[in-house]
Design a protein around this nucleic acid. Structure first.
Lengths: 343, 343
DNA sequence: AGTTAGCACTCTGTGTCATCGAGTGCTAAC
DNA sequence: GTTAGCACTCGATGACACAGAGTGCTAACT
């Protein structure tokens, strides 16, 4: 639909958007002519701007205050105007440096990743930890704690660990626990977690198991271990958003921080990007959470081998520096994938 | 020094503090007489207030604005005036309810604890995860990931799990890994982690090991597993602080959120309370971080058996409802200890 | 001597008003 | 189609007066 835009309109729109990204303030016709090398008079630009407003690309906060790009404008900007540069060498090196000085616990790595995203983009970094369900089973272990409490540890192919304390109703000797885990490891090796669940169910029904107390106990334990806790998210750099002039207002700030407290919603949002090929962008109120009205999200999935594990991204104001941030998100996702992969 | 206070001064000081806790606004002499049943005239109260200011208990923001209790006043309040009630039945039940509906992963439990602290106190809940060092060794496991990567899993007596991916320089067969962990589990069973470290060092020097390749590899792996990552902190409810009128100012808010991003400092602060008998209170700028100028921290250690594991607490404005929050922190710590203990 | 009433004084917060400046929209001329 | 000119709008800023809350001091009271 928008393709009725003339070349000149596009240039002007781009100029306005870029100006607005820099200043966070409504852009007037004069600024456009001055800053941009267009040999046009302010009056002409005004006419064009008026058209752009009609088309829904611009909005005026009030009569005499220049114009502000709408979500639609940013969408157009991202889709059609923006040429994505590859990442700056400097930033690439910085990302690498961060990862190098890094302990190798997977959780730590994810947290560090969100820190990297935030510190390099100057916005908010976010990483959704891998769901077990999207993962390949590697091993299960049971550790006897005091009394009848058992610690179950589940390890995936990519080294993600999920652990859970199970309150058993009877005390099980350590040797039995070892036998149980051997049995399960054999049974489940190489399956994805969703297959694992199906397999457990199927095995429970089988005669062989029904009369073997140990096996059936083992299956029950594994079942309890598998039921997944809420996905973990690492969010870092929330303060950065406070630097943005458009959030200088206390109420807006509250809204935003409240949005971040409800991690469930965030996760739902990011989960939708799991299947995306590469970078995915949500602009402003485009898709989601009313609380994140004035924010955009740039996401990319990360993987281990062919297996998509989770999603990471950057959250910033709608007027964020897309050209700068998109390559950062993309590169970080690939870097993380490499580190989690067979590396 | 402060004991020169007359009974009447103390009453007035208490009234002012309580008023200020409620309203967050400077308290004038009239409010004191009105709200409190004291049969004194405002003028008299003014005289007393003037004395209290001289003694450093009160401060006036400006000439005509009533007075505000200082940190010193709150300290006095907490130490001498406050009588600690035991926890409300209602709140106790609420805490219990939260814990009941709870998956049993230790990490999850700690996170939920900080959520509980925040939601019941209406301030910020904070929990420092157990350090491994303060813990008793239970078991170590090695899981072979792809290639030469090994996942090491360390379990403590109380069921806390620490895991780490180790990049080995050669591929080690699974059977060897099992043998290695058996060897280590035998060697280290029942020691505290600091003893474990010493033991590993000592064992590495012994002849028996020096010529056994597998053992020495095992020791090296365990050493790598043990070097501790930064302590984890769970902070929940930061938005609550935004509701406090004294932080309505954008710059103050920024300061506070920045303080929370530097978790290292927070941890240092809380660590100091590890050895405290029970509840510990920091008021305002009393001890620490200049950034947390206007905040107080109420902490309590939690334990498993006799073994102090970590610290939890509530962070709120200096004018927080100490009488309400102290029992909450205390009770939650004991509850968590019970859950982590032999259950 | 301690307590209180009275009063002048101080300071902040609020509302009003005029002014300034940036920016628009329209019209008429180029 | 483009541009200059101009009237108009609207927010931001600063000056000013005024109300209200609170203090400190003095003088009178018990």
């Amino acid at each position: 639909m928008g393709d009725t835009l003339t070349e000149r309109s596009r240039q002007i729109l781009e100029a306005i958007i870029e100006d607005y990204i820099k200043t966070a303030e409504p852009v007037g016709s004069r600024s456009v002519t001055r800053r941009h090398g267009l040999s046009l008079s302010p009056a002409t630009v005004r006419n064009v701007m008026s058209d752009l407003e009609e088309l829904g690309f611009l909005a005026s906060p009030h009569t005499s205050a220049g114009r502000v790009p709408t979500d639609k404008a940013f969408r157009f900007y991202v889709d059609s105007l923006l040429q994505i540069r590859s990442i700056d060498d400097e930033q690439r090196d910085e990302i690498r440096r961060h990862y190098r000085s890094q302990g190798r616990d997977v959780g730590e790595m994810l947290k560090e990743t969100s820190r990297i995203l935030s510190s390099i983009s100057h916005y908010i970094g976010i990483v959704v930890a891998p769901r077990f369900t999207a993962n390949v089973f590697r091993q299960i272990e049971f550790v006897k704690l005091c009394g009848s409490r058992i610690l179950a540890i589940l390890v995936s192919e990519s080294g993600v660990v999920q652990n859970r304390i199970i309150e058993s109703n009877e005390e099980i000797p350590s040797e039995d626990l070892v036998r149980m885990s051997n049995y399960l490891n054999n049974l489940l090796k190489g399956l994805t977690i969703s297959e694992v669940k199906a397999r457990i169910f199927q095995e429970m029904e089988s005669d062989k198991v029904r009369y073997d107390d140990l096996m059936s106990k083992a299956l029950k334990l594994s079942e309890q271990t598998l039921d997944e806790p809420d996905a973990e998210v690492f969010i870092e750099g929330q303060v950065n958003i406070l630097e943005q002039p458009e959030f200088a207002d206390v109420d807006k700030m509250k809204e935003i921080f409240r949005a971040f407290e409800e991690k469930g919603q965030l996760i739902t949002l990011l989960d939708r990007c799991m299947d995306a090929e590469r970078v995915n962008i949500f602009i402003g109120a485009e898709n989601f959470l009313n609380r994140m009205n004035q924010l955009s999200v740039i996401t990319a999935p990360y993987a281990s081998g062919r297996n998509t594990l989770g999603v990471l991204g950057v959250i910033g104001p709608t007027r964020m520096g897309y050209d700068r941030v998109i390559p950062i998100v993309d590169y970080t996702a690939r870097m993380l994938s490499k580190l989690l992969g067979s590396g």
